[in-house]
Amino acid sequence: MMFGVKKVFILLSITGFLASFVKAQISPPGLGDANTAFWSAFGVKRNLDSLGKKQTMSYIAIGRKSSPDNDNLFAKQAIFVLNHEFYHSFTPHQQYSYALSYRRQPEYEKESPYDRENIEQEFRIYGRYAYTFDLSKKFKLKNTVRQEFRKFFDADFHKVDEDFQLRTRVKSQLTYNLSPKNNQKLAISTEALFSISHFNEHDQHWNSFGYRELRLAAYYMFNIPNSPFTVDIGYMDDLIRGSRSIHHGGVHYFAADLIWNIPYKKRETNDQDHLD
């Protein structure tokens, strides 16, 4: 196997010395086996206090991907996502978050002409802990552990073969402050995914916990001048263990996100409030 568990930890260690707190970036999800894929999201990020320690991020997103026999990243629908996450930076370098997510993902036949076979729905809850290191004035390092619970249904909310999954994600990301003009930044990251699943098929059973994917990403981020919007443009390579795509360098993603940043606004009080 091209990327065994030992190689995953080696790559994570290397990136750990290089990874960071990118406030707006929305990383692509896994879209399954393909050659190329496209991911785009529109998010609304709101500060809940004047210090920016508490925030929420809500986004809606779509993904498209190629068929196994071509490189057209817009060839077919891959996923629809609704996500809401709450963040709390409880110290200057530590942060936790928790989220709810809904995903609707078409499944396609494995043989040509790769027609759509069915629809899978997913409800996901997850929690995340992150620690950020200030390496210098321009470099920041962020290491993250994220634990997910994923529950799956078909289009009519009936059971599917894979009942639910517990997944652990370990990520390191490096951010370089490219220029203060428009808050331009560059970021690279490495993320390893490990999981165990419970299945409904035949006799109900669990598979073994193990490494499933490695995701390598690079992003360029900037603020649109004189606006509350941030743009992220990125690339991700998804190396899926045991997939067809891993023999061709993985699934190559291109991503573009737009984030609307809403500052904290203190609630005004009226005279009656003061009298009370």
Score class of each variant (00 low, 15 high):
Gly32Asp: 02
Gly250Ala: 11
Phe17Lys: 13
Leu82Val: 15
Pro106Tyr: 07
Ile60Asn: 01
Ser208Leu: 13
Pro113Asn: 10
Thr144Tyr: 09
Pro68Asn: 03
Ala99Val: 06
Arg46His: 11
Tyr235Lys: 01
Gly249Tyr: 00
Lys151Phe: 15
Ile224Arg: 00
Phe42His: 04
Asp134Glu: 13
Asn183Ser: 11
Ser243Cys: 10
Tyr59Lys: 07
Ala78Arg: 05
Ala255Trp: 02
Thr91Lys: 14
Asn207Ile: 11
Asn72Thr: 03
Tyr129Asn: 08
Asp71Gln: 12
Met57Arg: 07
Ser179Tyr: 07
Arg46Met: 14
Met2Pro: 15
Ile79Thr: 14
Tyr98Thr: 05
Phe3Val: 07
Tyr129Ala: 05
Thr175Asp: 05
Asn118Glu: 15
Ser89Thr: 13
Ile62Gly: 05
Leu166Glu: 13
Asn261Phe: 06
Thr15Val: 14
Val160Tyr: 06
Ile196Val: 13
Lys6Gly: 08
Asp49Asn: 14
Ser208Thr: 15
Gly127Ile: 10
Asn223Gln: 10
Tyr87Phe: 11
Ser27Asp: 06
Asp232Asn: 03
Glu111Lys: 13
His248Asp: 10
Ile60His: 07
Asn207Met: 10
Gly63Thr: 00
Ala78Asp: 01
Thr269Tyr: 11
Thr175Trp: 00
Pro92Gln: 06
Ser112Met: 14
Gly4Phe: 13
Asn35Gln: 04
Val5Glu: 12
Gln121Val: 12
Asn70Ser: 08
Arg241Leu: 15
His274Phe: 15
Tyr220Cys: 01
Val81Leu: 05
Leu166Ser: 12
Glu85Tyr: 05
Ser136Leu: 07
Lys110Met: 15
Phe21Cys: 08
Leu73Ala: 05
Ala41Leu: 02
Pro28Lys: 00
Lys45Ile: 09
Pro106Asp: 02
Trp39Val: 01
Met2Arg: 09
Lys137Ala: 13
Arg146Pro: 05
Ala218Ser: 14
His202Thr: 14
Lys54Phe: 02
Ser208Trp: 08
Ala41Thr: 02
Arg64Met: 03
Leu135Phe: 14
Phe9Pro: 01
Phe21Gly: 04
Lys54His: 02
Lys137Gly: 12
Gly127Pro: 06
Arg146Leu: 15
Lys110Leu: 14
Val5Met: 11
Arg116Asn: 14
Phe199His: 09
Arg124Asp: 11
Phe80Ile: 12
Phe149Met: 09
Val231Gly: 09
Lys110Ser: 09
Phe149Ala: 13
Arg150Trp: 08
His158Ala: 13
